[in-house]
Structure formats: structure tokens, C-alpha cells
């Protein structure tokens, strides 16, 4: 309606402004599209390289791989920064006469379109980052197996430094410890290998890996309850227009049933968490029983934290 009383010169002014903004928008869209091509191309090219490096890096902490991954992410960040800087300068900082209400309206429209386009770009950027992050994989089963195999091969290999009698390494030690020679009672110092010293650390990661399906079950509940809520909400909305008593009754019953389901699901959450945590700690204790008492205290702490 507001345009109805405008004179011709005002309209042509708006046309000019709109044209200029459109040009900027077109340029911005083209610019963003080119950056998106870069994101896709660079991510696609780097993934096989990173995957290979993740599998072959001889370093215990895969430091070469991690540096490479950081550098790839750094490049993705540099692309994103470029887009962000231009968005700030050319779109947010677009010069126009802000006291002119009509122009402001056109500007807001222009800005929203550009921001929406930027938002799409940003989503692609986040997906690319995730794909790069996902190249990181650790086979904790394999690392643990190596420790087990090593123990098997060394446990009867050592002799007492004092009298030469065989001494048995009766379990997997992950810290240096004193082992008494059964023949002469000398306290020998046994130092585990570098990989065996990682047992406690690998143990937790492996236990988490082995029980992650249980954690997933727990973590999925909010999604499930949300779905139930939406179902219920739709039914409730449909009741507003409904006059048929029988249908109202039927739908109300359905709503109650959904509510009940929701509550039941919600109430299983703590139990599911506990189930996961118990299973995880049981696994961890199996892998490194030497710290089972300490793990138990950690378990109780996590359970208490959850209840808070």
C-alpha cells in the first residue's frame, strides 16, 4: 500500500537502489559459489591423503597425521574466513541511506537473501570439517591385542638379575614395578614396554568403543521423545477443528497414549545411562583390573554427576 502514494521519481530511485543491490547480490552469490567449489574440491582431495596417513603414520600419537589434519582444517577455515570477511564488508557494511524507510526495506530484503546464501555456505563448511575430522580412526582393539600378544611373548623370558633364575611376569603391568625372584627373593625392577604403559589409557578408549551402542541408546531418547511430542502436537492441533465426538474421543485417547509413552521413555533414561556406564566400567576393569577400585570411585562420581 505504501507505494501507492509515491511519486514517479521515488519509484525510479528505488529501482536504481534495487538494481545496485541486485548486482552486489549476484556478485556475492557467484563469489560464494566459487568458494563452495573450493571447499568441496579441497575436502575431496584431502580425504584420501588423510585416511592413508591415519593408517600409516608410524608415530604412536600419529602426530604427522594430526599436523596434516590441522593444516587441512586451517585451509577450510581460510576459505570460510574469506567468505565471512566479504559478507561483513560488502553485505553488512553495504552503504545506503538508512533514514530512507523504503531503501531500508529493500536493503533488508537484499541482506536476508545474502545471509541465507552465506548460511548455506556455512553449513557446507561445517560438513566439510566433519568429513575431515572423520578421517581420524583408532583401532583400540588392535592396540590392545598387541599388548596382549607382547605379554604372551615376554612373560617367561626374563631372569633374575641376581641369581639368574627364571622370573615370571604374572600379569600385564602398566607401571614399572618390583618383582620378587622366587629363588633368591631379590626385588627385580620390571619396566613395561612403552605400549604396555598405555594400557590404562587405551583401556578406557576401548571400553568406550565396545559399549558405545549402549550410550547411543541413551543419547537417542531426546530425539525419540521429540518425535512423540510432535505427533501429539499434531493431534492436538487437529482437535481444534474437530466436532465429531467419536473422533475427539479417539484422538484424545491417542494423545494420552503418546503422553504415557513419552513419560515411560523419559523415565528409562537414567537406567539406560547407568546400564551404559556399568558396562563401560566392567570392560575397563577387565582390561586393567589393577585400577578397578579407583575406576569404581570414578563410576560413582559420574553417576552422581548425572543425577544432579
Amino acid at each position: 500500500m505504501s507505494g501507492f502514494f509515491k511519486n514517479g521519481s521515488e519509484d525510479s530511485r528505488i529501482i536504481v537502489v534495487r538494481k545496485e543491490m541486485n548486482e552486489t547480490k549476484e556478485r556475492f552469490f557467484t563469489f560464494i559459489e566459487k568458494l563452495e567449489d573450493k571447499l568441496r574440491e579441497f575436502t575431496a582431495a584431502s580425504i584420501p591423503e588423510l585416511t592413508e596417513l591415519n593408517n600409516t603414520d608410524p608415530d604412536q600419537f600419529k602426530r604427522g597425521y594430526h599436523r596434516m589434519k590441522a593444516a587441512v582444517l586451517g585451509q577450510l577455515d581460510s576459505i570460510q574466513k574469506k567468505a565471512l570477511d566479504v559478507k561483513e564488508e560488502k553485505i553488512a557494511g553495504y552503504a545506503f541511506s538508512s533514514d530512507d524507510h523504503e531503501v531500508s526495506k529493500v536493503y533488508l530484503e537484499f541482506r536476508n537473501e545474502c545471509y541465507d546464501r552465506y548460511f548455506q555456505f556455512d553449513e557446507l563448511y561445517a560438513r566439510c570439517r566433519q568429513e575431515v575430522e572423520d578421517t581420524y580412526a583408532e583401532d583400540f582393539e588392535l592396540q590392545y591385542q598387541k599388548i596382549l600378544d607382547e605379554h604372551e611373548s615376554i612373560k617367561d623370558k626374563f631372569r633374575c638379575k641376581q641369581c639368574g633364575s627364571p622370573i615370571t611376569i604374572d600379569r600385564i603391568y602398566f607401571t614399572t614395578t618390583y618383582i620378587t625372584c622366587p629363588a633368591c627373593q631379590t626385588r627385580n625392577t620390571f619396566e613395561p614396554s612403552t605400549q604396555a604403559k598405555m594400557l590404562e589409557h587405551i583401556g578406557r578408549s576401548l571400553a568406550e568403543q565396545r559399549t558405545r551402542h549402549l550410550l547411543k541408546e541413551h543419547d537417542e531418547i531426546p530425539e525419540k521423545t521429540q518425535a512423540l511430542y510432535l505427533q501429539r502436537h499434531h493431534l492436538e492441533l487437529s482437535l481444534i477443528q474437530e466436532n465429531d465426538k467419536k473422533i475427539i474421543e479417539q484422538k484424545t485417547a491417542e494423545i494420552h497414549a503418546l503422553e504415557k509413552q513419552h513419560q515411560e521413555l523419559e523415565s528409562t533414561r537414567p537406567a539406560l545411562y547407568q546400564k551404559y556406564l556399568r558396562a563401560m566400567f566392567d570392560e575397563w576393569n577387565k582390561i586393567n583390573p589393577a585400577l578397578a577400585d579407583e575406576h569404581e570411585k570414578f563410576y560413582i562420581r559420574l553417576l552422581n554427576d548425572y543425577a544432579k
Partner: peptide, 15 residues
């Protein structure tokens, strides 16, 4: 090494 491993577990236990 024992003390170090156990100090880590103390931190884990401490809410």
C-alpha cells in the same frame, strides 16, 4: 609411575 597413575584417578574421582 604409580603415584602419577593414581593422581589421575584422584582427579577423576573428584567432582
Amino acid at each position: 609411575e604409580e603415584a602419577s597413575a593414581l593422581w589421575v584417578t584422584r582427579m577423576q574421582e573428584d567432582s
